[in-house]
Design a protein around this nucleic acid. Structure first.
Lengths: 342, 342
DNA sequence: CAAGCATGCACCATCGGTTGTGCAATGCGG
DNA sequence: CCGCATTGCACAACCGATGGTGCATGCTTG
């Protein structure tokens, strides 16, 4: 009648202990599995498990973590969810974490360096056992605060100098991709022509490596890249769209081919092409990053798909052995051509 | 020399207390802001803040949550990250949570009902203050376990009967979308023709509502839908691809138009079309859910974009006032046509 | 000058688990 | 029947922060 239906607080091991007439430590031992080593009888264990199940008991992980100095939480900092590269990283990360009995916390910082730091601090506040910085603008800062707290730290996608890193072979992938686009253009025009490069930041490792490959591929094709067509205006679609506008204004005709650095940038490039030349054939495009729909837009779009599975396998292996050497592992990309799958 | 560089444990309020020669409770009061009500002097507060900053002190949120019975964690269960609808929900959710001083935890369950439940239980174990079930296959089960723990709970995208829900106006959106596709087909063929319906689950509310609108739109166009062309084979791209294969095998020619239920299904449909009829004009397609690249594939693709911003605004408003009434709020979708933006 | 009040902080129980240790009861051999 | 080992569990300290309460000290007021 007047039982207070307020917030029906979660039952604790003390509640269970009272009900079975045993001590909380016994209940704890049974529920976390080390009851055999504490010489709790099978009969007692069974009785406790029964009551716990009946109550839908859920152990308070905060309390557990507080005492154990180990949270089983594993944090990932990630720039965006809105493209297939990062979203597959997120999904695979969660899947692998769960398999290993860890609880994944992913936090998305919209490429905001300030937010990245704040997110790292918050993760540490919640006492995650490990912080993985994915595509972080300043991974070393994150490494520093992790080190100060004694928390394991790895970099993914973009390398850092203060923690082990797992990234794609950006040079290798971009070299093949650029060469393929150059070849397609040459086949069409009868002679090689320099490509444009759109998207990314000229400050990040990946863009630099892809640019290096871009230039080398041009050299291998026997032509010089045109520096005025290299526009690393960031990853946002809007900025890429502006870059194409700028490109179109500066020259009589669009380049025969474009290296597009990320699918976000590709979004902007395609938007521009569709709105300004809806009927024209588009330039040959090499996109560093894959999207299933982009593949279907036009057979002139080539895409390099990064090997997320392998990267995460390596990452989790390093975590398992608590690797600390500041080494950068490069994983080859898998090449994708237009409209082909997987 | 022999200072142990093991794990440089995070500093606690006790460490700081010792350094400034004050009690831990004073440090706590200063650092969590209620020091004025505890009549701590400005001078003392300043001294403590200085030391805390210098040490890079990060409060242990687990301990805090344990004591406060309030974690400031807010959990979201979500099927997938790999499409623009869910990924924008995730990003917006995180953004709004942070603005409100909450720490968002999103966990992705790959549309696995078993995983959903397990995820809910885990979130409760970590004592989240609120659980939001997005697109859950069985939201009511989640509501039950949340209720048992006295934790606030809301449904997003798919409605439940045991917690407040915020969803799209699936009927309204699908009615307009279907009508537009029907009209496009009629304009081309000279007479209205029934559309195919591909994707989704005939067990979930959204699919049922969209199907109801699908039928009503046919009725309004003066034709009967063909039941044998309604294939709710799930959301996975592979299943949708199989559905089209089945459709193509069963009839001499493809339908003039297709209602595609989700961008995942659209992926499968487009894959089939490209691999089986690479050069043919594709059917008119109405996709319930938006993707920027899909919009560029063909002007015959129409897309309904759900109003994620408004849905989340409503959701957070309800959370703020701790609304409990099991009401379902429907938010109109924004209509999108081919290649147009935002 | 005593009573009264404000100031500034310390003490301590508490949140829900974990784990080292202690102790009674039982079993067993001699 | 006694000593000793084993079995089966309880006790209590602890993890790090919070907040109610209490106690000096200094200042004001009659």
């Amino acid at each position: 009648m007047s039982a207070k239906p307020e917030t029906p607080r979660q039952t604790t091991i003390y509640d269970i202990a009272r009900q079975v007439g045993l001590s909380a430590s016994t209940v704890s031992a049974v529920l976390n599995g080390n009851w055999k080593s504490r010489r709790i009888s099978e009969k007692t264990a069974e009785r406790i498990r029964l009551v716990a199940d009946r109550q839908g008991f859920a152990l308070n992980q905060q309390a557990r973590a507080l005492r154990r100095q180990r949270s089983n939480l594993i944090g990932m900092i990630m720039p965006k969810y809105d493209n297939r590269y990062f979203s597959s990283i997120a999904e695979q990360f969660e899947h692998r974490a769960r398999i290993r009995g860890l609880f994944p916390i992913i936090t998305c910082t919209s490429r905001d360096p300030e937010l990245e730091l704040q997110a790292a601090r918050t993760l540490l506040s919640y006492k995650v056992d490990c912080v993985i910085a994915t595509g972080a603008t300043n991974p070393d800062l994150i490494s520093d605060i992790c080190r100060a707290s004694g928390v394991l730290n790895y970099n993914l996608d973009l390398p850092g100098s203060r923690a082990p890193s797992v990234i794609s072979d950006n040079y290798g992938g971009a070299l093949v991709l650029t060469s393929r686009v150059l070849a397609a253009c040459a086949a069409e025009a009868g002679r090689p022509e320099p490509l444009a490069f759109i998207g990314g930041r000229s400050t990040d490792h990946n863009t630099l490596e892809r640019l290096r490959a871009f230039r080398d591929a041009h050299a291998q094709a026997g032509i010089a890249p045109r520096e005025d067509m290299i526009l690393t205006t960031g990853y946002a679609a809007e900025r890429a769209e502006q870059a194409v506008t700028q490109l179109a204004a500066a020259m009589p005709t669009l380049p025969a081919g474009i290296f597009v650095n990320s699918t976000s940038a590709l979004e902007g490039v395609m938007r521009w092409l569709r709105s300004h030349h809806p009927e024209a054939t588009i330039p040959h495009i090499g996109s560093f990053d894959w999207d299933p729909f982009a593949a279907l837009i036009d057979s002139r779009i080539l895409m390099a798909r990064q090997d997320v599975e392998t990267m995460l396998d390596i990452l989790f292996d390093m975590m398992a052995e608590r690797a600390q050497d500041r080494h950068c592992t490069e994983v080859p990309v898998r090449q994708i051509t237009a409209a082909s799958e997987d």
